[in-house]
Nucleic acid binder design. Structure first.
Length: 266
DNA sequence: ATGGTTGTCCAACAA
């Protein structure tokens, strides 16, 4: 069984590439982030035509998450408990479509689009840290309730947990960039303390998952590792292999993120 | 050539 996560940066703009990728990669479950559409604009037939069930959560042109599966798609949830809301300048806060879950062949798969943070002193950074803290409390409680639960926290985490997860840590620190600050990294580590782990890194040392569209970041090899599929202990034990599909970042019409694939035994 | 992006509600914001 193969589970993947991919921030597609607009599903409509990426429909042909997503379909080609699904066919050649042959994954069983795909957690999608940044669909950038509401349900009425969602390309349902893309998944139906390829024998995937799909569930979507999107309310406007921002964010949007989905899960496609051909091994079952049960008990869909579109938020986690106490998920913080956000409204810029405090106006009309909403629970943004950044998290959804479904059970696929016994695995509880979460598609997560963690808030970006925007700047170290931006209100969006407080939102990001709070959002992660509440998600972590939820995730810890799921494991306490069932230590054998198979859970994947898959998505765009918008955090580079280690210095080697960006092309030049000095550049990030000197420019007061987000994604590498200690509070963000502590928020990520809290999931590891709660029992979740990253099964992809051992198979992909030194690899990145994201390259900014600007500044020729991809041809220059200037990327970041910010997309993760964290696994509960029972699920981590099943991981046979994992890879980051850097080829998918190439060429015209690519997302700025590459898909991350985890292969499970059985 | 000292710049060089992409997506959305096509204007201004988000990443």
């Amino acid at each position: 069984m193969k589970i993947a996560t991919w921030n597609v940066n607009s599903l409509r703009a990426r429909a042909d590439r997503v379909e080609d990728w699904l066919r050649r990669t042959d994954v069983d479950v795909l957690a999608i982030q940044e669909t950038k559409c509401k349900d009425e604009n969602f390309p349902w037939e893309l998944f139906e035509n390829n024998d995937y069930e799909v569930a979507h959560f999107g309310v406007n042109q921002w964010n949007g998450v989905a899960i496609a599966s051909r091994v079952g798609l049960d008990d869909v949830e579109r938020t986690f408990g106490g998920q913080p809301s956000f409204g810029k300048g405090g106006k009309d806060p909403i629970q943004e479509p950044r998290a959804m879950a479904a059970t696929c062949n016994g695995v509880r798969v979460w598609s997560l689009y963690v808030p970006n943070g925007r700047a170290l002193d931006d209100e969006h950074m407080e939102y990001k840290l709070q959002w992660l803290d509440v998600l972590k409390d939820n995730a810890a409680s799921w494991l306490e309730r069932d230590p054998d639960a198979q859970i994947a926290l898959a998505g765009d985490w918008n955090i580079a947990p280690r210095d080697e997860d960006v092309w030049d840590i000095d550049f990030f620190v000197e420019n007061r960039m987000t994604h590498v600050s200690e509070p963000e990294r502590a928020a990520f580590r809290a999931f590891e303390t709660a029992g979740f782990s990253d099964p992809v890194r051992p198979f992909t040392e030194g690899a990145f998952t994201y390259w900014d569209y600007t500044q020729l970041r991809f041809p220059r090899g200037e990327g970041m590792r910010i997309d993760f599929a964290l696994t509960s202990p029972a699920l981590a034990a099943r991981v046979n292999n994992a890879w980051i599909d850097r080829e998918e970042r190439k060429g015209k019409g690519a997302s700025d993120h590459a898909p991350v694939v985890v292969e499970l035994a059985g």
